Amino acid sequence: MPSETPQAEVGPTGCPHRSGPHSAKGSLEKGSPEDKEAKEPLWIRPDAPSRCTWQLGRPASESPHHHTAPAKSPKILPDILKKIGDTPMVRINKIGKKFGLKCELLAKCEFFNAGGSVKDRISLRMIEDAERDGTLKPGDTIIEPTSGNTGIGLALAAAVRGYRCIIVMPEKMSSEKVDVLRALGAEIVRTPTNARFDSPESHVGVAWRLKNEIPNSHILDQYRNASNPLAHYDTTADEILQQCDGKLDMLVASVGTGGTITGIARKLKEKCPGCRIIGVDPEGSILAEPEELNQTEQTTYEVEGIGYDFIPTVLDRTVVDKWFKSNDEEAFTFARMLIAQEGLLCGGSAGSTVAVAVKAAQELQEGQRCVVILPDSVRNYMTKFLSDRWMLQKGFLKEEDLTEKKPWWWHLRVQELGLSAPLTVLPTITCGHTIEILREKGFDQAPVVDEAGVILGMVTLGNMLSSLLAGKVQPSDQVGKVIYKQFKQIRLTDTLGRLSHILEMDHFALVV
């Protein structure tokens, strides 16, 4: 994948999101292997301009796509893939009243899908469409860049269908997702969380590099694949309309690839034109409109599966009536509230959605109805927002919020430890010299600072030695090549209790 991002070429006709291997024109390309080798690009942008032909009021008969309808489940399912879809609609009884809503608040519980998330729908649909058009064949390999849930859905379907599955996901995604993927037989590649989507090191860039190296491999490409919004247009939206008897006044959905909100909203605009569509985008993402909503100094966020630093091709923002931004604290607070007060075992993005819903639905009156999409299960986040310690460490809970008995030293300040200034190293000294210094002084790690004293990161003896043994660096290389740029900081005025929580999850903390 090139470091400079080429513009994806656009073909003359058809839909841009065809499933299957992508040609340089962004659509299915038939021909000899030699032709494909000559024409197939190194990668295709996940934010390529959409060429979708959908228009409100256009006859369904003019759609270029294969459409399906929700099917009634048999008493005995032939395999677990038949437990994807037909998820329950559940009334939220307490939270709406707590925040003064007059309307009825309903939750579409997508964590009841077989793999635990709304992404099971698009995973199965992308595979079925690729099999139907002859792209996927027995023994082929599926590769997908994902925040985890699409990966789980694909790995689940691949396990049943017999495909090899490789999932490329950023490091910030939970260990629970990784464990589930491994249990399903998927191979996992992790990428830096802070890598831009168009960087060769991003999950998108690495996935395309693997595709170019592995024979008979395919990126189904949830960011561009029409099967993504079509899955929701054909099934999720129809289920909502049936469950609500066609009567709903507002739908609120958090947005990642945009397939969920695009597919549902398009069908609702056709069948229930008075329904307002509300999009939820986390602070630090750029999906919301108008652009002024996205202006923030924050560039990272903890909530998973929603928000991006690019506009995915499948996201149709014209069908969203209003956007709201959400933050991590309210997302996790509301997710825990949904679990504790409503018994809905949902993930953090569901918290984002409901946090926005109780604001947006203030305009609705008694007798009206708001539906929220709860995308995934708490299963993926047992060591994250479900953990009091994690919430404390991230600053989303305060010590006084917890009532468990603490040891005698818990409320003492870090400054009472009488710490001395640490050994520091410059980023320009060599790895070999740094190892000598650390061994001589008896230290395992040291902060790396520039000549102005600005902290650049941390270097550890173990990481340097393993990097040297693996051949990633040489003793003569500058130590700046092996620094940890993500590390926890703590102030002298913070409590030892807070430091204790940090050290339970990290090997060190830097006192500043």
Rank of each mutant, 00 (worst) to 15 (best):
E4W: 12
P6M: 11
A8G: 10
V10H: 02
G11P: 03
S19A: 14
G20R: 12
G20P: 09
H22G: 06
S23V: 04
K25S: 10
S27C: 12
G31F: 15
G31V: 15
S32F: 08
E34R: 02
D35F: 01
E37N: 11
K39Y: 03
K39H: 03
L42K: 10
W43N: 07
I44H: 10
P46G: 02
D47Q: 06
D47I: 04
S50F: 05
R51C: 02
T53D: 05
W54F: 08
L56S: 10
P59N: 10
A60F: 05
E62A: 14
P64G: 05
H66I: 11
H67R: 03
H67P: 03
T68N: 15
T68F: 14
T68H: 10
P70D: 10
A71L: 13
K72Y: 10
P74W: 04
I76R: 02
I76D: 07
P78A: 11
P78H: 10
D79F: 06
K82W: 08
K83E: 12
I84M: 13
T87Q: 04
P88L: 05
M89I: 10
M89E: 03
R91D: 08
I92Y: 07
N93P: 08
N93R: 03
N93I: 06
G96F: 03
G96M: 08
K97F: 15
K98V: 12
K98T: 10
G100S: 05
L105V: 14
L105R: 03
A107K: 03
K108Q: 04
K108A: 00
C109L: 04
E110P: 01
E110T: 00
F111E: 04
A114Q: 13
A114G: 13
G116F: 07
G116M: 07
V118A: 12
R121L: 00
S123C: 03
S123P: 07
R125S: 11
R125D: 15
M126D: 06
I127K: 06
I127M: 13
I127A: 11
E128Y: 00
A130W: 02
E131Y: 08
R132M: 09
R132K: 13
D133S: 05
G134H: 06
L136E: 03
K137L: 14
K137T: 09
G139N: 05
G139L: 07
T141H: 07
T141A: 13
E144T: 04
P145F: 03
T146C: 04
S147A: 07
T150K: 04
T150N: 01
G151R: 00
G151F: 00
I152V: 11
G153Y: 00
L154R: 00
L156P: 00
A158F: 01
R161P: 07
G162H: 06
Y163R: 04
Y163L: 02
Y163C: 00
I166P: 02
I166Q: 04
K172P: 01
S175V: 10
V178D: 05
V178K: 06
A183Q: 11
L184R: 01
L184N: 00
G185L: 00
I188M: 07
R190K: 15
R190Y: 06
T191C: 04
T191N: 04
N194C: 08
R196K: 14
D198I: 05
D198Q: 06
D198E: 09
P200A: 08
P200V: 09
E201G: 14
S202E: 06
V204W: 06
V204T: 14
V206P: 03
A207Y: 00
R209Y: 10
R209E: 12
L210M: 08
P215W: 06
P215D: 15
N216P: 05
N216F: 06
H218A: 02
H218Q: 08
I219G: 00
L220F: 03
D221E: 07
D221Q: 04
N225T: 10
N225D: 01
S227H: 09
S227C: 12
P229N: 05
P229E: 06
L230Y: 13
L230M: 15
L230F: 15
L230H: 05
H232R: 04
H232Q: 04
Q243R: 09
Q243F: 06
Q243P: 05
D245K: 03
G246H: 05
L248I: 13
M250K: 07
V252F: 09
V252G: 07
S254F: 03
S254H: 07
V255F: 02
G256L: 00
G258T: 00
G259W: 00
T260D: 02
T262Q: 01
I264G: 01
R266Q: 08
K269R: 13
K269F: 02
K269H: 06
E270L: 10
C272V: 13
C275D: 00
